[in-house]
């Protein structure tokens, strides 16, 4: 049986204010249960791509569909479709500050399922379960502004996991986090993937790409996909990574001799 396509993007163009291009001719297929990473330098359009996948912005031209249903702005005016889409697709924003808008952590986490009309006893059960798994039980009654960056990120992830979406989209999930919290988040993603969820991650942290992806897409500064394939193949292609600002030439001394090589930032990861 052929693998089911969840998202299909066909020649998608998007620009801000009709003047500043953010995506130029993006085409890709994402299969159910697949782990996808979108890598690229800052400002290459990764976040815009994820926003399009989450139905928050819409292409100027080209086509995007979820399970063969085209995602258009007017389609979201249909409450049944919109509600169904939000239950299926969860998005963890790059900036946790924007995602945590409620007065307390607990209210933030339950915001999504309450909006979707889920049963309150079930919401409470999921809340307790997630708080335990993410080790945020102590934070539930606190205000989001009192949390550290790592805690905010965990709460933002909890606010999406509680919806139990089929597709989890994450924008730079490990940016600015300490190694332990990064590890915790990668483990969560791996666990979510094992349970059959489709995981789409935008990152420029090459440390984590191998673990969180089956397929890697490289987006260039020209806002185009310039490479795709398995993480092993992409990470081995230093020329491609260098051209897209994902590696740099690292020069250092070994005794008296100066030695230079491409620095992938994955060499020191054990």
């Amino acid at each position: 049986m052929a693998e089911e396509t969840v998202f299909r993007l066909e020649d998608v163009y998007f620009s801000y204010l009709g003047r500043y291009p953010a995506l130029c001719g993006i085409s890709l297929d994402i299969k159910r249960g697949e782990k996808i990473s979108v890598i690229g330098a800052n400002g290459c359009g990764k976040s815009s791509l994820l926003h399009i996948l989450d139905g928050l912005i819409f292409p100027d031209s080209g086509k995007i569909s979820l399970c063969s249903k085209e995602l258009k702005e007017d389609a979201f005016e249909d409450m049944a479709f919109s509600s169904d889409f939000r239950k299926k697709v969860g998005f963890v924003f790059q900036n946790s500050e924007v995602q945590l808008f409620c007065p307390t952590v607990k209210e933030d986490i339950v915001f999504g399922p309450l909006q979707m009309g889920k049963v309150k006893t079930e919401i409470k059960r999921r809340l307790d379960e997630l708080a335990f798994v993410l080790n945020i039980e102590e934070l539930l009654e606190r205000s989001p502004h009192q949390l550290s960056i790592g805690e905010k990120r965990k709460v933002a992830i909890a606010s999406v996991l509680i919806i139990d979406p089929e597709v989890i989209i994450m924008d730079e999930p490990t940016a600015g986090l300490d190694p332990l919290t990064t590890r915790h988040i990668i483990d969560l993603l791996t666990e979510a993937s094992r349970s059959g969820k489709t995981i789409i991650t935008a990152t420029h942290d090459l440390h984590i790409v191998e673990e969180i992806s089956d397929t890697v897409y490289v987006v260039s500064r020209e806002k185009k996909i310039v490479g795709s394939g398995s993480p092993e193949r992409i990470l081995a292609d230093t020329q491609l990574l260098k051209e897209n600002n994902l590696v740099h030439i690292h020069s250092h001394k070994h005794r008296d001799a100066t030695h230079a090589h491409p620095h992938l930032h994955i060499d020191h990861h054990h």
Binding site: R86, F93, N95, V98, F101, F111, I163
Partner: peptide
């Protein structure tokens, strides 16, 4: 951005 984050989690005005 906050409005987008609300929409993303199913905000419908209530």
């Amino acid at each position: 951005e906050v409005y987008k984050a609300m929409l993303s989690r199913g905000y419908k005005g209530d």
